[in-house]
Computed example of a mutant assay.
Amino acid sequence: MTFAAAIQDLQPSPASPVSPVDLKETARQLDAAYQGLPIEALLEDAVHKLFPGKIALLSSFGTEAAVVLHYLAQVDKSVPVLFLETGKHFMETLMYRDILIDRFGFTDAREIKPDAADLAAQDPNGDLWSKDPNACCRIRKVLPLDRAMQPFDAWFTGRKRFQASTRQAIPLFEASAEGKIKVNPLAYWTPDMIQDAFKRFKLPQHPLFGEGYASIGCQPCTRRVEAGEDARAGRWAGKDKTECGIHLDFQI
């Protein structure tokens, strides 16, 4: 049986939900099959063979986002590109998003916003980030993404192992708690590989990259990174938090 057929067999129905064990096994098989292959081959197969019409790219349009966007645009510009518009982003990030979408020619760019009722009930003053950042991320990122991902079976991320100690074991393919497959095509890339791609393809950098921001999320919860720190050390600095919540289900 092909991986595509195996994945199709695992699709949920009202009477037969996906088995987490089966989904994890499928992810493990895919991860093993694609080790060592070029990113172009991985993206091509994921889009056209494994998850045809059922995969999207979630992009933060952060400091390294242009790399996976560039490679995906070479494969299929119609793949939906999802952006979680939390209402708390740097203006520079919103500008950068528009620049990259225009440059690469993606035809289905979707702005995913939090539910207005959730904001009114849980964050009426817009300061939940300072009181309970996990709850803020949940209503502004986790729940909106869950809704946006309902039509899809899989999604691309831009995560890499070098970004933080908590990401050092990221595979190419993994199963999520929501019954989706997450594809991490840049998992094994190094900082030098990322910067080489920026130079080779003449990709524009995020406007804040040169100001010391190595990883960029929402403005209130992001600071510059100091020398010797992890790339994500500037995210939720001083708080017991390293992820927004959309990747907390990661298991190798």
Rank of each mutant, 00 (worst) to 15 (best):
C221I: 12
E25G: 00
L58E: 05
E25S: 05
K202D: 15
R200N: 10
I194T: 01
A121T: 11
C244H: 09
R28W: 10
A73W: 12
P220C: 14
A32P: 02
V183Q: 10
A121W: 04
G126F: 06
F3I: 02
D240F: 06
A227P: 15
T190I: 07
I252R: 14
P151T: 01
L143M: 08
I7N: 12
V142N: 04
D196R: 14
K131Q: 13
E226C: 06
G245V: 09
A41G: 04
P20D: 05
I99M: 14
A121P: 04
I194Q: 03
F250P: 00
A5P: 02
A148H: 03
E44I: 05
Y71M: 11
R138F: 07
W236A: 02
K202A: 15
M193E: 09
K88S: 14
F51D: 03
Q205A: 15
D31S: 08
L30Y: 03
W155V: 05
A27W: 06
Q122E: 14
L57P: 03
G158H: 00
S60C: 15
I55H: 03
K202C: 14
I170Y: 07
Q150V: 15
G126C: 09
H70P: 02
P80E: 13
P52R: 09
A120G: 02
K160N: 08
L69P: 05
L30I: 07
K49I: 11
A169F: 02
K239G: 01
Q163Y: 00
L186Y: 00
L42V: 05
E25T: 07
C137S: 02
L84R: 07
L248A: 12
F90A: 11
I194V: 11
R200H: 07
P124I: 04
L248T: 15
P204L: 14
D9E: 10
C221P: 07
D127T: 13
R232C: 11
S78F: 13
F104Y: 06
I7V: 05
W155G: 07
V67R: 07
D108W: 10
L84Q: 01
W155C: 07
L119I: 14
A237C: 06
S165Q: 12
M91L: 11
T63W: 00
K24Y: 04
L69Y: 09
S176E: 11
L82K: 02
A15I: 01
D123V: 09
M193R: 08
K182A: 12
P20I: 00
F106N: 07
G36W: 03
D230W: 00
I181Y: 10
I246D: 01
A109Q: 08
V225M: 04
Q163W: 00
L203S: 03
A66G: 11
S19F: 05
G126M: 08
A227Q: 10
F162Q: 00
M95T: 14
F61C: 03
H89G: 04
S215K: 02
V183D: 10
F173I: 02
R224M: 13
V68F: 12
K199H: 13
L100T: 12
R159S: 07
L82D: 03
R138V: 02
I55R: 05
A214N: 08
Y34H: 11
P114M: 04
E226I: 11
K88I: 03
Y34K: 09
G53D: 15
W189R: 11
N125H: 14
Q163V: 00
R200A: 13
